[in-house]
Amino acid sequence: MAFVLHTPETIKQAVRLQRETGGEYLAGGTVLLVRHAAKPIDGHVISLQGIPELKGIGYRGPVLRIGALTTFTEMHKSGLLGGHFKALDEVSRIMGGPQVRNRGTLGGNIGSNSSAADAVTALVALDAVIRREGNLITCIELSDEKVAASAFAKVGRRNAMAVSVANMAVARMTDGSYRVAVGACAPTVLFCQKTSAVLSSGGTFDEAAQALQSEIQPRTDRWGTEEYRRAVCPNLLERLLAEVAP
């Protein structure tokens, strides 16, 4: 076996190539290339860089459509994520460092399959729709009609180039309900159903914090301890609720 690079020009070609070769998709490369830094790639890689359909950010009616290959820098610079989609704008502004934001893509962040993926936490809170063809993420849709306000916060061991020890996004929806999502505190990014329900039904903050503690499943790992994560989550919730308050 050797390194074989495919450069499809359409989504259909990409999906077919992946099915035929079992290769890995390459979006911005910030995960794939780092993973292969020590050992050369041995197998098929399907680069998505040459597929125009996967790029771009813009409104179709009340729906903001973000192509999976849109970089974080492009998202932040678009100016379209201010206002009620602020949670995703904040991710686009602070995740990784400048180099990662210039290369890394929204679709790639989802596809990286990490429970600490900052964008995923924001997308869960924002009740985003993820569109795909076959096993390829093609675009992400956010709706003006759903979200009234949102906010995101992360805790890392330093202020840039830091894996999240915990991250959280809170969205206040147009119907008055709340959506809370937490990252790096469970095996996956977690939609905190009970916490969201408590907040949506007008429960107190203490009740919400209790619900949050019952939902998260933090563990101690190299980035942080379980006790730290249990302590920081309610503090983040309190801060983000203040940010999204009407």
């Binding site: 203490d206 914090a209 209790q210 503690q213 019952s214 006790e227 302590a231 920081v232 309610p234 503090n235």
Partner: peptide, 16 residues
């Protein structure tokens, strides 16, 4: 240790 510097208030030790 950041844990030492945090405010720990919201049912951190009680609810889980």
């Amino acid at each position: 240790d950041r844990y030492q510097l945090m405010e720990k208030k919201h049912g951190v030790c009680s609810s889980h």
